[in-house]
Each structure stands twice: as structure tokens, then as C-alpha cells.
Computed example of a mutant assay.
Amino acid sequence: MYEILCALLLGIVEGLAEFLPISSTGHLILVGHLLGYEGDAADTFKIVIQLGAVLALLMLYWKRYMTLLKDLLAFNFSAKKKLNAIHMIIAMLPALIVYLACKDFIKGTLFGPGPVLIGLIVGGVLLIIAARSRRKVTAEETDDITYKQAFGIGLFQCFSLWPGFSRSGSTISGGMLLGTSQKAAADFTFLISVPVMFGATLLDLYDSRNSLTSDDLVLFLIGFVAAFVVAMIAVITFLKLIKRLGLEWFALYRFVLAALFYFIVMM
């Protein structure tokens, strides 16, 4: 019963945190540590339930994904001033390559409270740098993003493989440093998060296939559903919030969270 409650609580945390630049994975690791829900199965659980929140995002952007899919199948990549599948692919490749090359190190070393606290702090500094940069905005909307900017955002997404950095935090910061508006960077971040998370989840499930039991699958389903439901309720509000609030506020939250957790739990 306790594990079911843990799965439900972690699913709620995931649904609330996924769309803000505060690292949902970092929150899951810290909350899991407080609850005593840790280990290989727990690490896989924390990745799988993110798919529930991402599925909510897929439902929100389904028309855009259908357009991208149609263009991909028709090899229609020539339209100027329009986001297409090539932007998505080149933005996803860097993190995919780094993950495949370093996944054992990532899961074996970085999925712990200590590395997460470091990621929260360093990621917060990156948010402040991006917020205070005075780069000329060349991409006000998502369709204005160039291939070069998309690839650069993909490079910044590699930071998100370190739990605590935040996928949205690293990519939104990267986009702003490369000349996109915060709104365009946020929209592009959410668009690429769906295929990235689907791919990461499938790879992780395959790698963990021999260590998972039917009981684990029940917990995964509970967390997945909880994350999906909460994210569906929160997604529209959070998408508006991320586009209106300055990144410094999220950085401040990250610093406070890291300090509180360190002094209360780790000292």
C-alpha cells in the first residue's frame, strides 16, 4: 500500500513539475529519496511516468504534430519561415547520441540527491544568464527558428541529461542565448520533448526488462495515470506561466529548494 501511495504522489509531482524549468526528474529523485523509494526499479519508474505528462502535451499539440508528420512523409522541407521535421530531428540528435554513449554513467552516478542539488544550482545560474542576456531576438515565433538555432538548442538539451538541470530550463535558456524569444524557445522545447521522452522511455524500459516485475508495472501504471491527469489539468496554466514569468523566479525557486533539501536532509 505504501508503494502505491509513493507512486501516486510521484505521479502528481511529475505532472506539476514537467512543464516548468525546475527539473521534474530532479524533483522525483528528491521526493523519492524522502519517501525511501529508490533503486533501479525506482529510477526506471521516474523516467516512465514522465511519459504520462508528455502524453498530455501530445494531446495539446496534436495538430502541429500531424502537420509535421505530413511534411515528413511528403519530404516537404523547403518552406521558409516554417518549422519542419528537420528542425525537430537536428534538435533531438545531440542528446540522443550523448544518452546512448553515457547512459550507464548517467543512471549509475547522476540519479542521486547530491548530483541533483548541483544540477539545480548550476541550472539556475544558466537561467539567470539567459534571462539577463541582451541577445538580439531573431526568432519571435517557433516558425522563425533556423536550423542552426535548432541544433544549438539540441546541444543545450544535453545538459538536461543531468537530473536537476531541467530539459525545459536548459533548452529555453539555450534558445534565448541563441536569439529566440522566450515564447518561441518554450514552444519549441515542448514540441521536441514528446519524441525525446518517448525514445528515452522505450530505451530505459528495454534496458530494465530483466529486472522489472509485474508489481513494478502496476506502480508504473499508477504513476503514469496520475502524471497524465495532473498534467492535463495543469498544462495550459503552466504553458502560460512559463511564457510570462521571468526565468529568474524559477532560478530563485531552484536555489531555495536545493538549500532546504541540503540543510534538512543531507546535513
Rank of each mutant, 00 (worst) to 15 (best):
F190K: 00
L212P: 08
D71I: 01
I264L: 15
I128D: 00
P115G: 08
D215F: 09
T138G: 15
S23C: 04
G175D: 06
P195C: 07
I129P: 05
W249S: 14
V194S: 13
I90E: 09
D143E: 08
Y2L: 12
G199Q: 00
L100Y: 04
L16S: 13
L20F: 10
H87M: 11
T180A: 11
M92K: 06
I128F: 03
A95Y: 00
T201M: 12
A85K: 05
L212N: 06
L16V: 15
S208M: 04
R64Q: 10
S208W: 02
H27S: 02
K70N: 10
N76R: 15
E140D: 11
W62G: 00
V13C: 10
T67K: 04
H87Y: 13
I236V: 12
A79M: 11
C102L: 13
F159W: 04
Y99E: 05
D40F: 07
V196W: 01
L126R: 11
W162C: 11
T67Q: 09
T109V: 08
G175S: 10
K107A: 02
T146G: 12
K70Q: 13
K46N: 13
L96M: 10
L221F: 15
M1Y: 11
M232S: 14
A226D: 02
A185R: 01
G11I: 05
R134T: 09
G32W: 09
E140Y: 03
S208Y: 06
L96E: 00
S170A: 15
G179P: 08
A231E: 07
S160L: 04
L203P: 04
G223V: 07
L9E: 06
A42T: 01
F156C: 15
L126G: 06
L245Y: 05
L30D: 14
L34C: 07
G119S: 04
L177C: 06
I89M: 10
M1P: 14
S211W: 04
F75V: 13
G175K: 02
G36S: 09
I49T: 03
I242H: 09
I47Q: 02
